[in-house]
């Protein structure tokens, strides 16, 4: 019999993953610090992390600020037998460490992966057609994720560019924030397209500096995710950018969004990193200026547009 699948985090995405896995016939242990029962056959909810050790594949579905804390706790219970796949968008610290690097440092687990792309919790939970990408160096991790989730309504692509998937997913948040802002400034579709395309290109440059492959940024984790954000998948970055663009203070915008806005957190970190590494990131610098309150929107836009032309 297949071992159970573990899911950590009983937020919208964690519960959607649990449902998805139960739908393809797997037993699921869902961890939550304050467990609420879930009426889905095959899903058992627990507040004991130690119980997750019986699983082989563990999904980590907690917001990025909590990843380190959870990983540290998890590190007491897991070992080399386990596989961890996270779905968190985020980067940590001045060196832009990815979530998988954080998990690797805090747990003995080595077979790691990141599931990303335009995956929306509600769509997954309802079983509507969707697709995502698993980034992992280990083919067996990709196999395990497909066995645990893939079915008639969910296609999962795979890539060995784990860093690319994580960076595209996280850096895309900065572009999404810029797009929200631009929408609030009533900029037209052409301008939004330029922002999105060049923003992804910039994200790819940062990604390459961190060892990722540029083409991953044109895939589901990069372009795919950004298209979903613009099409209205409820990404907090877009809503945050729009609120700030409409004149709300940062605190008010964050309050209105009601969720962690990763893009706003990492933009200044990416700007500093890029300056150290001499990577050109004009859009991220612009977003950093806007959210740290250092510049007027029209002035930032003018600076962006007046830069000397360059090859695409």
């Amino acid at each position: 019999m297949s071992p159970p699948v573990a899911v950590i985090g009983a937020g919208g995405f964690g519960r959607a993953l649990a449902k998805c896995s139960a739908r393809v016939g797997r037993r699921v242990i869902l961890y939550s610090r304050s467990p609420k029962p879930m009426d889905v056959q095959g899903v058992r909810v627990t507040s004991e992390l130690a119980e997750l050790a019986q699983a082989e594949l563990v999904f980590l579905a907690v917001p990025s600020p909590h990843v380190a804390g959870v990983a540290e706790q998890l590190g007491h219970h897991l070992d080399g037998r386990h596989l961890i796949v996270h779905v968190s968008r985020g980067l940590v610290g001045h060196e832009l460490h990815t979530v998988s690097e954080t998990v690797r440092a805090l747990t003995p687990v080595r077979r790691l992966g990141a599931l990303a792309g335009p995956l929306v919790a509600e769509t997954l939970a309802r079983g509507e057609p969707a697709g995502g990408v698993i980034g992992t160096l280990f083919p067996e991790v990709a196999d395990a994720v497909c066995e645990a989730l893939a079915g008639p309504t969910l296609r999962i692509y795979r890539t060995s560019d784990l860093a690319g998937v994580e960076l595209a997913n996280a850096l895309g948040g900065i572009v999404a924030l810029a797009l929200g802002y631009a929408q609030a400034m009533k900029l037209g579709p052409g301008t939004l397209a330029v922002l999105a395309t060049r923003g992804l290109s910039e994200a790819a440059r940062v990604g390459q500096g961190r060892g990722a492959e540029a083409r991953t940024f044109a895939g589901l984790a990069g372009a795919g995710d950004l298209i979903a954000a613009v099409a209205g998948d409820g990404r907090p970055e877009v809503a945050f950018g729009r609120a700030v663009g409409e004149g709300a203070s940062l605190a008010d915008a964050a309050k209105a969004v009601g969720a962690h806005v990763e893009g706003a957190k990492i933009a200044p970190l990416v700007s500093q990193w890029a300056q150290r590494k001499q990577v050109d990131v004009p859009l991220t610098d612009a977003v950093t200026k806007l959210i740290t309150g250092g510049a007027a929107p029209r002035e930032v836009l003018r600076e962006l547009m007046e830069r000397p032309g360059r090859a695409e």
């Binding site: 082989e56 590190g75 070992d79 037998r81 386990h82 440092a105 080595r110």
Partner: peptide
């Protein structure tokens, strides 16, 4: 072998699949 928390772990797990 030692885990990051200093716990002794069995390295054989890394070479295993489904036990």
């Amino acid at each position: 072998s030692l885990a990051p928390d200093g716990r002794v772990i069995d390295p054989r797990g890394y070479a295993s699949r489904r036990g």
